[in-house]
């Protein structure tokens, strides 16, 4: 996590600049959103108990975004707990490997992003992402952070319904709670959803989100994680 903090600061400056730059122009809005992810967490350990799958779990997320003309910036925080009654993700540590069973693991995602509509309905965005996992059996923490690039778009079906989606990849480093780097990680995420306009300021959304992580540890081990599932969301826009 040591590298994530300076990266967040580095990214915060251009993002803040964008906000300031965009401030005097027109067509700006601030949007607050809440999302409920009914995801399952599954994956494979390269050694030990090879496959793991959560019994139940989910995430609750909050997001705040500001858009101005073609620009948008925002941050999102999601977190949740997953229950593993059998095999859980193995703890591949710097100095050891610890297979885990019958525990809960907390998962959190933090995104700080900036995007630009390169076409009317298609935008490109950069995402400074931090992912954290915390095993409840022994309080072990591990996470990865990195910079991602994505593309998002939408297609209005009619006045009320809009289809939207996004896809992107992130590359970064895995580190332990003590900021020791223990490997490399990459992830990709695909979101497909539909949004319904309740009124000009409020929207409901629902869809499918597929996230895949590939962890390659320095000790030669590897691990994959898939957090796939449906989501429901609500967005409110504050007119500016």
């Amino acid at each position: 996590m040591k590298r994530i903090k300076p990266m967040i600061f580095l990214a915060a400056f251009p993002l803040a600049s964008l906000l300031l730059m965009a401030a005097p122009a027109q067509a700006s809005s601030l949007s607050l959103g809440v999302t409920l992810n009914g995801t399952g967490w599954s994956g494979d350990n390269s050694s030990g108990n090879s496959h793991f799958e959560s019994d139940q779990g989910g995430q609750l997320g909050f997001s705040l975004s500001y858009s101005q003309d073609r620009w948008y910036v925002g941050l999102s925080l999601q977190g949740g707990e997953y229950e593993f009654s059998q095999t859980a993700p193995t703890q591949f540590r710097a100095s050891s490997t610890q297979p885990v069973q019958n525990t809960n693991v907390k998962h959190s995602d933090f995104d700080l992003l900036a995007g630009y509509y390169v076409w009317d309905r298609i935008s490109l965005f950069i995402d400074l992402k931090a992912v954290g996992s915390q095993w409840q059996n022994n309080d072990y923490e591990q996470g990865f952070g990195g910079l991602g690039l994505g593309v998002a778009g939408y297609h209005p079906l009619n006045e009320d319904w809009t289809l939207y989606g996004s896809w992107g990849v992130v590359g970064g480093k895995i580190s332990e709670k003590n900021d020791v780097e223990i490997g490399d990680a990459s992830s990709s995420a695909l979101t497909i959803g539909a949004s319904y306009k309740l009124n000009p300021l409020d929207r409901l959304s629902m869809g499918l989100k597929l996230r895949g992580y590939q962890y390659d540890f320095d000790n030669g081990e590897s691990q994959t994680h898939d957090l796939n599932g449906i989501f429901f969301g609500y967005n409110h826009v504050f007119e500016m």
């Binding site: 809005s29 949007s31 990709s188 969301g233």
Partner: peptide, 11 residues
């Protein structure tokens, strides 16, 4: 352009 206020994309 009147863009719908969609959820922010995240990765």
């Amino acid at each position: 352009i009147e863009r719908p206020h969609l959820p922010m994309p995240t990765l």
